[in-house]
């Protein structure tokens, strides 16, 4: 597997209440293409910050971030939205669907940024909803869907534009065990069948065990990680 996501000496600090917190400390990380990685660690360890930086939602203070051979860290603020639209699909803990839109309209929303016609956008959104098993819920509003269904719509939205990377921030955090398992199964299928590289933050060990690798973070550095079933050995940390 080729290196697909690469973080070199990435540092990120936040200032809260006058205090400067170093969230990521000269972090090196590589994630190969079609990998399915779970980032775990205590609160404040930098998991979500890594996710945001990989997804282009946030910028590092220093260091270099490369995703799909593109140096994301050198993109300007005005270039980042376009880059996100082309390369990244997001799945959030609280689903983050637009409440006034139906399921299919939510999935069609990012497709508006593509050159597709309306008919093509609709067709692609229908396909994405079919992939996540929600063909019969297309015209439902988020308030008319269960939590698991909402997350499936969010996943359909994340894959609708056929992105290179899916970043998922605690995608099972608001779901019961059975629903969480089905969501993880779906993400697994996206990884194996559609060859999507997935980076996921989770506190859920059961969910993490369904990933190919688990990386543990503490105080902004990788402390251990490795392929599932191969023990821990830090192979994910460069």
């Amino acid at each position: 597997m080729s290196e697909f996501i690469e973080l070199k000496q990435v540092t990120k600090t936040y200032t809260r209440g006058g205090e400067t917190l170093r969230v990521l400390d000269a972090l090196d990380l590589t994630i190969p293409h079609t990998d399915f990685v779970a980032l775990m660690g205590p609160s404040g360890s930098g998991k979500t910050t890594i996710l945001n930086i990989v997804g282009g939602l946030d910028r590092p203070d220093s260091g270099e971030v490369t995703v799909a051979n593109e140096t994301v860290s050198s993109l300007s603020e005005s270039q980042l939205p376009g880059w996100r639209a082309r390369h990244v699909g997001f799945v959030f803990q609280s689903f983050n669907l637009v409440p006034v839109l139906t399921a299919i309209e939510n999935v069609m929303l990012p497709l508006l940024l593509t050159p597709l016609s309306r008919a093509e956008r609709k067709k692609q959104a229908e396909f994405a909803l079919e992939v996540v098993g929600l063909s019969d819920r297309m015209t439902h509003r988020p308030s008319q869907l269960s939590g698991g269904q909402e997350q499936r719509v969010a996943i359909a939205r994340a894959i609708a534009t056929d992105p290179d990377v899916i970043v998922a921030d605690e995608p099972t955090g608001d779901l019961d065990r059975d629903t969480a398992n089905s969501v993880m199964e779906l993400l697994g299928r996206l990884n194996t069948e559609l060859q999507k590289t997935i980076v996921m933050v989770t506190h859920d060990h059961v969910a993490a065990e369904q990933c190919k690798r688990i990386l543990h973070l503490d105080k902004g550095t990788l402390v251990e990680g490795g392929p599932m079933g191969a023990g821990t050995g830090g192979s994910g940390a460069a």
């Binding site: 983050n96 409440p99 929303l109 990012p110």
Partner: peptide, 14 residues
């Protein structure tokens, strides 16, 4: 606000 965050994440410009 949150909706604008979603749209920003999806790639819509400011």
């Amino acid at each position: 606000i949150r909706e604008s965050g979603i749209m920003k994440a999806l790639g819509f410009s400011n």
